[in-house]
Nucleic acid binder design. Structure first.
Lengths: 233, 233
DNA sequence: CACTTGGGATGACAAGTGTTCGCTGACTTC
DNA sequence: GAAGTCAGCGAACACTTGTCATCCCAAGTG
């Protein structure tokens, strides 16, 4: 069904992935395989809403995905490998969020409002991904933890770049810009996590969500005030 | 079969603690029991350095503690109950840290320095506890998660009280003091977590530790600048 | 068209799990 | 010192788990 697309797409790609090497066959076959892979990842993501990666069983995942236990090995060597795949996916969507937060225009106040809105929207739309990241950021699976930490560092660099270009940051040392970026990223993560368990704790969801948004905005405003008075201190 | 005992035991006591009610016997007996309880908790804490609570097995714990599987039930109903006990312990030590951070004297600069030092020292001395909190804060075991969240809220209140008493906060609305307190607590947690995996990633531990301390200090200073200029904005 | 390829299903394996049971022997109380 | 209490033990239970050799059959190939 996607045959032409996939062959076109994959034929001349120097494929490094051991499993899921799919470059030499083509057509319905790998479309199905990719579909099974997606089914496994979705099943995993669904199960991970109520537990964490290291307590997940592969039988559990295959059962949820409607597949036999052995089928798992055709796609992933490990559950850790599935975890890393999920990290990549989750971080891609998070990256998109950060970009759109950075791209905001207007005065400081409007940018803050839009940023917090973007975060809230992202948590609403990608709840499973965000929860997964929050859980596994300090979780028990080392490669997953490292992947998340590395990507968050890259985000901080990106934010630092954007902040450095703003007129408010004139005269700042690179280290100071960097620490400001880290502060923003940490705050973003904290806020996202707060939105997360505001939605899942039941009782008056939208009210506590508004409360979190208000707090986050005020905090960002405070940091902003610190920024404009940073050099005269 | 234990009918008579239990009815006698429970009938006229407004007893809230089912297990580990130890008030009526005395001497060597309960000292031994408490010792076993400690052994279980220590074993759990040791095992939790490389995995999270929901993937922990009780057989695993009892084995590590040098005890038979059935012995576990004399102390905890669940692994979740063990988890909650560990939360209480961990939060007690964290509470002590926060108090001593709040009690700092001197000008703002000196207080920031000492605060960051206190955090670093606490992570060094209670690594297992801190890691446990970081892991289970967003982990898969609901009661544990809630216990941590509730206590962190209480900490924020305490910090808010202390901040409100400072002369810098004159004219602030209670909500703003509160959001500032939350910002501080979040920052404290983030910093502690950063110290944590600075120590465990190997390569030049004390250098990256210093880097984190420097960043944290600068961030606190920035927030402080925001504080003093908050009202004129 | 026959023929190869390779996802997926099946069934079995050992090893591990949570939980319950009755028992023992050291402590406590009368 | 006899009777009562109960923390911890070892065995047994009914599972679930990861892994593998094996077979099946639709998709791809010449």
């Amino acid at each position: 069904m996607f045959a032409d697309f996939f062959t076109l797409r994959w034929r001349n790609s120097a494929n490094s992935c051991l499993l899921n090497d799919v470059s030499h066959i083509s057509g319905v076959r790998q479309a199905q395989k990719q579909q099974s892979r997606r089914a496994l990842m979705d099943a995993g993501l669904r199960l991970l809403e109520h537990q964490n990666l290291s307590s997940l069983g592969m039988r559990e995942v295959t059962r949820e995905a409607g597949m036999s236990p052995a089928g798992f090995y055709r796609h992933f060597r490990d559950l850790a490998e599935l975890g890393v795949a999920l990290v990549e996916e989750s971080l891609a969507s998070l990256h998109a969020m950060i970009r759109s937060a950075l791209a905001e225009q207007g005065d400081a106040e409007a940018r803050i409002d839009r940023t917090v809105e973007v975060i809230a929207g992202h948590v609403r739309d990608h709840r499973a991904h965000v929860r997964f990241l929050a859980r596994e950021r300090h979780g028990g699976v080392q490669p997953v933890r490292e992947a998340i930490a590395a990507e968050l560092r890259r985000f901080a660099e990106e934010v630092a770049g954007a902040l450095g270009a703003q007129p408010v940051s004139e005269g700042w040392s690179p280290e100071d810009v960097r620490m400001l970026a880290e502060l923003y990223v940490d705050h973003m993560v904290s806020t996202a996590a707060a939105f997360l368990d505001a939605g899942s704790e039941g009782s008056d969801e939208s009210e506590s969500e508004r409360r979190i948004a208000r707090t986050a905005r005020t905090q960002l405003r405070l940091i902003g005030v610190g920024r404009v008075h940073w050099l005269d201190s």
